[in-house]
Amino acid sequence: TETREFDNEEEARKEAERLRRKGQDVQIRKKGNRWELRRT
Rank of each mutant, 00 (worst) to 15 (best):
N8T: 15
R4N: 08
W35I: 02
E2S: 11
G23L: 01
R39G: 13
K31G: 01
Q27M: 10
K14T: 11
E9S: 03
E11P: 01
Q27R: 07
F6D: 01
V26E: 00
N33R: 04
T3G: 09
R20M: 08
Q27L: 10
R20A: 07
R18C: 13
K14S: 11
T40F: 10
R20I: 09
E15A: 07
L37G: 02
G32R: 02
G23Y: 04
E36Y: 10
N33P: 10
R21I: 08
R4T: 12
R39I: 15
E36D: 00
R38T: 15
E36P: 02
R18M: 11
E10L: 08
D7F: 06
R34M: 12
R4D: 07
E2R: 09
Q24W: 15
A16W: 09
E11M: 06
R38V: 15
R4F: 14
E5G: 06
G23P: 01
R29A: 11
R20K: 09
L19H: 04
V26P: 03
L19D: 02
V26Q: 01
E5L: 14
E9R: 07
R39W: 15
E2Y: 14
R21A: 14
R4W: 15
R38W: 14
T40W: 10
R38F: 15
N8K: 05
A16M: 12
R34H: 11
E5K: 06
E10W: 12
R29E: 12
R34K: 14
E17H: 07
E15M: 07
V26S: 04
R18F: 08
K22N: 13
R29V: 15
R29P: 01
A16T: 02
K31H: 08
K31A: 07
K30R: 11
R21V: 08
E9Y: 15
R34F: 09
A16L: 09
E5I: 14
R38G: 07
E10S: 07
A16Y: 12
D7K: 05
R29T: 14
D7M: 07
E5Y: 15
Q24I: 15
R18L: 10
R39A: 15
E2H: 12
A12L: 03
T40N: 10
R13I: 14
E2F: 14
R13K: 11
A16N: 00
K22Q: 14
E36G: 01
E11G: 04
I28D: 00
Q24D: 09
F6R: 00
D25G: 07
D25V: 13
E17L: 08
R18S: 08
A12C: 13
R18H: 08
T3M: 12
L19W: 09
K31S: 07
E17I: 08
E9D: 02
I28V: 13
K30I: 05
